[in-house]
Amino acid sequence: MIYLQLFYEFFITGLFMFGGGLAAIPFLQQMGEKTGWFTTTQLMDMIAVSEATPGPIGVNMATYAGYTVAGIPGGIIATVGIIMPSIIISLIIARLLVKFKENPLVQSALYGLRPASLGLIAAAGMTVLCLVLFGIELRYMTEYHLFLLDIRTFIFAVVLFIVTNIYKKAHPVIFLALSAFVGIFLF
């Protein structure tokens, strides 16, 4: 039964995620919260591995999350689940085509979808940032929690933010490798 639920959750994710891999994060976060399959911290580890390994980030995350939930069959089912909407929708569009992208209805829907997708990713980003810095998710934050700030983490985050914005062209894998290395000595 868990396989069916797994497929359903990832199918919905694939069906509603707009704008590539990172857009899957808010879905996975809510999925973990709702089902108890994995914690947000576990999700962050999955994101780290997914960004540092080849292949589409969305597929990587689905495989990892599925594997975490239900082993090898889980990994396969989650992966199939997340790419299934792509296959169905793209095949329909490929048959109908050709002026899909120029369609005014599609354009106006995207006008709303783009900022929404970004808002979702931003919310997920801030949530995990608070989790890392204060040890608590953004929505549970109160003024009191500000005192829980982990100074070492904060300094490292600021340095990393500056460095990544100086070397914008550098590949994220480099920063991930660097962070893992620094992490070993820092924490």
Partner: peptide, 20 residues
Amino acid sequence: VQSAFAGLRICVCVLILNAV
């Protein structure tokens, strides 16, 4: 491994926010 992932998690946050 845990320390390495502690570092990686910070990087993940920064990468997500940079993308935003």
